[in-house]
Amino acid sequence: VGDQVLEIVPSNEEQIKNLLQLEAQEHLQLDFWKSPTTPGETAHVRVPFVNVQAVKVFLESQGIAYSIMIED
């Protein structure tokens, strides 16, 4: 199991704000291929294997929908 690319769908401005804060966490080494800008629009982010669980827990705790787009 390696890195994953998640497709994330924020449903409101609050969730977009939370994702932008997540993007700013440099220690997570997230690679946003497509940043969140509009509710209902997908964002794509590559998550290093060591941080996959932490990111998924965060998304679930914020009620942000996501799916695994690419499993490496």
Rank of each mutant, 00 (worst) to 15 (best):
S67G: 05
T37M: 09
V57N: 13
A24L: 11
A43E: 01
E14P: 03
V47T: 02
S35W: 13
I64E: 00
Q21F: 14
E7W: 13
A43L: 15
L20I: 10
T42K: 11
P48H: 04
A65L: 10
V5Y: 10
D3I: 11
I64G: 00
P36E: 02
L59Y: 01
D3N: 10
V5F: 11
W33Q: 08
I68A: 04
E26G: 14
T42Y: 07
T38F: 11
E26I: 12
S67Y: 09
D3C: 15
D72T: 11
P36G: 03
F58E: 02
L28M: 09
V5N: 07
Q4S: 07
L22S: 02
W33V: 13
E7T: 13
A65Y: 11
P39W: 04
E60H: 08
S11K: 12
Q25Y: 09
P10I: 06
G2V: 09
V9C: 13
T37I: 07
E26M: 13
T42L: 07
P48W: 04
G63T: 03
G40P: 02
V45G: 02
Q21E: 12
I70G: 13
I8G: 00
I70M: 11
V1K: 12
T42P: 15
P48N: 05
E14S: 08
I16W: 06
E71S: 11
P10L: 07
V52W: 13
Q21A: 13
E26D: 10
A65Q: 12
G2R: 05
M69Q: 06
Q21N: 11
V5I: 12
I70E: 10
A43C: 15
P10W: 04
G2K: 06
V47E: 00
L22N: 02
V57T: 13
T37W: 08
L59H: 00
V50I: 12
E60Y: 05
G63V: 02
P39K: 04
Y66C: 01
N12V: 01
P39Y: 04
L22P: 03
V45P: 01
Q25I: 10
E41F: 06
A65P: 13
V9M: 13
N18T: 14
F58D: 01
V1I: 09
K34M: 05
T38R: 09
V55H: 00
L6Y: 06
V55A: 02
P10N: 01
E41M: 09
L28C: 07
V1Q: 14
H27S: 11
E60M: 07
M69A: 06
E7C: 15
V1H: 15
V57W: 15
V9D: 03
F49V: 07
E13T: 08
E26V: 12
E41Q: 09
F49D: 05
K34T: 09
H27M: 07
E13P: 08
I8P: 01
L22C: 04
F58C: 03
Q15C: 02
E23L: 14
T38L: 10
N51L: 09
N12Q: 02
Q53M: 12
W33R: 08
K34G: 04
L30C: 05
E26T: 13
S11E: 13
A65D: 06
V47Y: 01
V1W: 13
F49A: 11
N18S: 14
M69P: 04
A54E: 11
S35G: 11
K56A: 06
W33C: 14
V50P: 07
T38Y: 10
A24T: 09
K17S: 08
V9I: 12
E41H: 06
Q29S: 09
N18E: 09
A24V: 07
S11M: 14
L30E: 01
Q21K: 15
Y66E: 00
Q29A: 10
Q29C: 11
K34N: 07
V5G: 03
Q25R: 08
R46Y: 10
T42E: 04
K56D: 01
Q53I: 11
L20F: 11
K56L: 14
L6V: 03
L22M: 06
G40E: 03
H27Y: 12
S61V: 09
S11T: 11
E26Q: 12
L6F: 15
Q4L: 14
R46E: 02
D72M: 14
E41K: 06
I8V: 08
L22Q: 03
D31W: 14
L20Q: 10
A54N: 05
F58R: 02
E13F: 12
N18R: 13
S67I: 10
A65I: 10
S11Y: 10
S67R: 11
